[in-house]
Amino acid sequence: MSFWIVNTLNGLSLAMVLFVLSAGLTLVFGLMQIINMAHGSFYLLGGYIALSVIQASGSFIAGLVTACVAVMLLGAGIQRLMLQRLHKQELPQSLLTLGLLFIIADVAFWLWGGNAQLVPKPAMLEGAMTILGVGYPVYRVAIIGMGLFVAVLLWLLLERTRVGALVRAGMDDEEMVRAMGINIPLIFTGMFAFGAGLAALGGVLGGPLLGMFPGADFEVALLAFVVVTVGGLGSVRGAFLGSLLVGLVDNFGAAWFPQFSLFTVIVPMVIVLAIRPTGLAGRA
């Protein structure tokens, strides 16, 4: 019994980090058809900035806010100055974001050194608690809570606000929204910045578990890409489903067949796409 509880909770905590990370990726794709190869770089920067701020100020919240705001600004700048010029040109967009991936990786290596580091947990979330008679780390429970909170917030934002309605309309028919006199470029910049901020949030939340080191950007980006593809590109609901699938399959896979854990992320994706070529919640 405790095997099931622990592995389910582990799967859920990983899934929620992945969800926060991939929600931004999928929204940006849905609205602008940008496959952002540098999404993992935003995650890495978020984690590193939080790490430095927490070390300097001692406050986890300060680290979290600074990291998200800084990365959002960076995202806004990148969209405004670079990606905007390449609107709807998928191949040069890939080239650009791959270039940014290299640049940010090198800058991070230069600024923070190459040794693997952990983002410190907030002190009040240290230690373990008891769930259904099983001892379980508090911080992981907090991550599950945060992930669900972000999910609800995103749902409210998209479904219940004017901005959300515009974004959804922009996903369906950009020209029509433009014709209505809505400032589409502003929405694009805002959404790209928001997506970058979510990636940074993923870095701050996941940092205490996954650590920050050169190559972490690539590692989590791969997972995020799997999540959004499995879920269906452009769909937040899909990203949520995809995160749950990847998080749980990876954890139970590692528990049951550790020697095959190289395949536990990739093979389910191949199977899902073979059956549903546009992902679980994707539009055809």
Binding site: P92, Q93, L95, L98, G99, L100, L101, F102, I104
Partner: peptide, 13 residues
């Protein structure tokens, strides 16, 4: 790595 990345960015732009 920085230089290589910058070259790609410049090409893209």
């Amino acid at each position: 790595l920085f230089v290589v990345g910058a070259v790609y960015v410049l090409f893209a732009l």
